[in-house]
Amino acid sequence: MENAPVDHAAASELWEAYRAAHPERATDTEPPSVERFGDHPELTDGLLGLVLAGAKRATATLAAEFAAEGQPLPRVGSHWIACDSTGRPRVILRSTELRLATFDEVDEAFARDEGEDDLSLASWREGHRAFWQRVSRSLGFEWTEQHEIVLERFEVAWRAE
């Protein structure tokens, strides 16, 4: 089963509500990207649930994924909108820390901040290795542990009602 397409119109409405309420924070020069966590409904909704519960405060994305989608890398202070598996925007996130790393450069603290599984680096590596192998195949390349990863910490800036 696949995730539904994201609802860009609803995401724009959510962004405009946030901008009206917090013009001092919503200073992005371009509209935020509209994304989702994971690559299938169960994973997408599970990870989004961790974000909404406050357990997940970080995410890791292959730099090649941004390139494949023609998107620039995020910047500290930039926003993005996370959708659930039905495509409905649920939350606006604001990037608070970014760094590039390879698989073996990810540490325990980052794995814990991702909020997944048992919060250990070992489970982070197991889950992300499997995920990136799937994602890279779908993008037409073979993932290796030397591919650059964008490590991003974020805060919840605004929740959809």
Results as ranks from 00 to 15, higher is better:
Arg153Lys: 11
Thr29Met: 15
Glu35Cys: 13
Glu145Asp: 13
Ala58Pro: 07
Glu69Ala: 09
Ala4Phe: 07
Gly46Asn: 08
Glu126Tyr: 04
Gly127Ala: 08
Arg99Glu: 10
Leu47Gly: 00
Asp107Phe: 05
Gly77Lys: 06
Pro41Leu: 02
Arg36Ile: 08
His79Leu: 02
Glu126Met: 10
Asp118Ala: 05
Glu148Gln: 15
Arg125Leu: 05
Leu121Asp: 06
Trp132His: 01
Arg90Trp: 01
Glu65Arg: 09
Val106Gln: 03
Val6Met: 05
Arg75Gly: 12
Phe131Gln: 00
His147Gly: 14
Leu93Phe: 06
Leu98Gly: 13
Val150Tyr: 00
Phe141Met: 12
Trp132Asn: 00
Ala157Lys: 01
Ala21Lys: 10
Gly46Lys: 02
Leu43Cys: 09
Ile149Thr: 04
Asp84Phe: 00
Trp158Ile: 03
Glu30Phe: 05
His128Phe: 01
Glu2Cys: 15
Gly127His: 03
Glu126Gln: 12
Ser138Tyr: 08
Leu93Met: 09
Arg36Tyr: 09
Pro23Ile: 11
Val76Pro: 06
Phe103Cys: 05
Tyr18Pro: 04
Ser85Trp: 03
Thr29Cys: 11
Leu151Asp: 08
Val156Arg: 03
Cys83Glu: 02
Asp84Tyr: 02
Leu121Cys: 11
Ala55Ser: 15
Ile92Met: 00
Ser123Trp: 04
Phe103Arg: 05
Leu119Trp: 06
Val135Asp: 09
